[in-house]
Simulated scan of single mutants.
Amino acid sequence: MTRTFKGLLWGSCVALAAGCAIGKSESFTFTADLPPNFAYYAVAKYAPAQGETCTVTLDDNPYLGFNRKWRTEYRPEHKIPVYRTVKGCRLAIYRVELDIYATYGEDYGDFSRDSAVIVVREQLEEHQKRTFDAAGESAINGQCQWSFRTIGPDRYITKLLECKKVDAQGMVTKGRPVGAYTLDQLPGKTVKLNIKLADEEKPSIGDTWVKVPGGWKRCMGKSFEDQYAFCFGNYKDFSTFRMPDGKQCSIYPGCTE
């Protein structure tokens, strides 16, 4: 399906002398400070800049991807254009979508992801937009946490990643990490995604694990074939499980009691 972007997305520009950004091609630096075994993939999205009457479609490739091959060619820092020209149409960035990937094992499928986002607008209320320090850097802070469960008759551990934003007081809040900026804030500046990893993991499904000294024990349920295996008040019968590398364990995450 072809999707069309029209130049009036940003509104109309009364006169170039009044501050239209047509013709600019500045970039900003995006970088990330992530925990070990983490990476990001970014997609910068563009639409016709203010005052443009041209159109582009998805077939014109108006978006830019960064770290597409995040497993093998990852780089934490990239220059992202604020304005670019596609087929003679001047485009302005309006969004950067960030997929945060984290691996927990050696197999190709031993990973999970969550997301963050940068929103860019022509104008924002002062309380909505992020600020920059004297060095020209602005931080988007977040915290990710692993949750774990078992799958299959051998009860292999699989993990899910959940990332939340961290407010100015350092508190983890609802919603994914997000930062909002105006177009004129970004040229020549640096936006940094700071992600910390929670100290403890948690079960992804309630009443399936029991907290014990040193970790968590998996309730047996009806049998190993019982995929959910809720405890249902039975906190004495536990099962073994297997770590992603195949090792059989009785307590998570330390494996042995």
Results as ranks from 00 to 15, higher is better:
residue 10 W to V: 01
residue 21 A to W: 04
residue 15 A to F: 02
residue 13 C to G: 05
residue 22 I to F: 13
residue 37 N to F: 12
residue 4 T to S: 07
residue 13 C to W: 01
residue 10 W to Y: 15
residue 21 A to S: 13
residue 26 E to N: 12
residue 18 A to G: 14
residue 24 K to G: 10
residue 14 V to D: 11
residue 4 T to H: 07
residue 28 F to K: 04
residue 11 G to H: 05
residue 31 T to P: 00
residue 18 A to D: 15
residue 37 N to G: 04
residue 26 E to I: 00
residue 8 L to S: 07
residue 24 K to E: 15
residue 19 G to I: 01
residue 21 A to I: 08
residue 12 S to R: 09
residue 7 G to S: 08
residue 16 L to Y: 13
residue 26 E to R: 02
residue 17 A to D: 11
residue 20 C to H: 10
residue 23 G to Q: 09
residue 24 K to S: 13
residue 34 L to N: 08
residue 25 S to R: 11
residue 5 F to A: 11
residue 9 L to K: 07
residue 19 G to W: 00
residue 27 S to W: 04
residue 33 D to L: 10
residue 10 W to S: 03
residue 5 F to Y: 15
residue 16 L to N: 14
residue 35 P to G: 08
residue 35 P to T: 08
residue 4 T to P: 00
residue 26 E to C: 02
residue 13 C to M: 07
residue 36 P to D: 14
residue 19 G to D: 00
residue 5 F to P: 01
residue 22 I to D: 10
residue 25 S to P: 06
residue 4 T to A: 07
residue 35 P to Q: 08
residue 28 F to E: 00
residue 36 P to L: 08
residue 15 A to P: 01
residue 21 A to P: 06
residue 9 L to G: 15
residue 36 P to A: 11
residue 29 T to N: 10
residue 26 E to F: 03
residue 32 A to F: 01
residue 12 S to L: 08
residue 31 T to I: 01
residue 17 A to H: 04
residue 6 K to W: 07
residue 7 G to E: 06
residue 13 C to E: 12
residue 34 L to G: 09
residue 34 L to H: 08
residue 28 F to I: 04
residue 7 G to V: 03
residue 11 G to I: 02
residue 6 K to H: 08
residue 13 C to R: 00
residue 35 P to I: 03
residue 25 S to L: 07
residue 37 N to Y: 11
residue 24 K to D: 11
